[in-house]
Design a protein around this nucleic acid. Sequence first.
DNA 1: AAACGTTGCAACCGCTTTTTC
DNA 2: AGAAAAAGCGGTTGCAACGTT
Length: 242
Amino acid sequence: MEGTLGVRKGAWSNFEDDLLKACVQQYGEGKWHLVPKRAGLNRCRKSCRLRWLNYLNPNIKRGEFTNDEVDLILRLHKLLGNRWSLIAGRLPERTPNDVKNYWNSNIKKKLSSNKEDVNARPKEIVMEPHIVIKPQPRTISRTSPLLRGKVIKEDESENKQCNVSSETCAAASLECNINWLGTLLEENGSFIENDTCLLGEQDATPLEDLSWDKEHFSLTTTEIEDFLKEDQSWSDVIDFKW
DNA sequence: AAACGTTGCAACCGCTTTTTC
DNA sequence: AGAAAAAGCGGTTGCAACGTT
């Protein structure tokens, strides 16, 4: 099977897999545009990358999803929508493709069958439409405490360039994410207070009284922390690379 | 046993985002 | 700053394996 320019498509042979594995072992991951040439493969870079990330990478787990994993997928999907790479990032050794396939072939089906049940009983609670959380661009003011006293050098040109350390930028990025989440919650009639995430409720209902299924978007801090791996904070989780 | 339907997963495609020059 | 190239992502498709009639 060959596509345009004679590039091979379709299922990978064992021989091709071996070539790709040897190439990645020798040169490491990345620089995918060089991989076909280096490995001696008649495949496009995308195909090589996908084959490695979804199948050949030794750090991926195969087989059935555990109940915990399914639970986590459900929660994260509710929070993030179809952001498979982000969801997979919270599931050790699972790939975005695996998660997506699992969702499409298992969970989606179950949810739609539940929906049919709901239609059969019209008085029951119907799921709210999906809310997909998207980041908003942020600008750091020159006087922001995030800069921790660091000076922003003014360029000769009209455009000012931020000349701070990567550490400071990372801190700024983290704070931006937190602020973004706060703004997002406010926009949805929710807010954060101390360590408390008040979602869809303006009357400061204690978090313990909120449950995941109660509102279209409600989480307790315990539930939020359920997302976290060991030694990670909520800040680590929301410091996404968008 | 054959025909047909369903399922699960690997792979492709098109698009967006990021990086490089 | 802008264009081009590379990387990344999510939706969709194709197909082999399996189940059902």
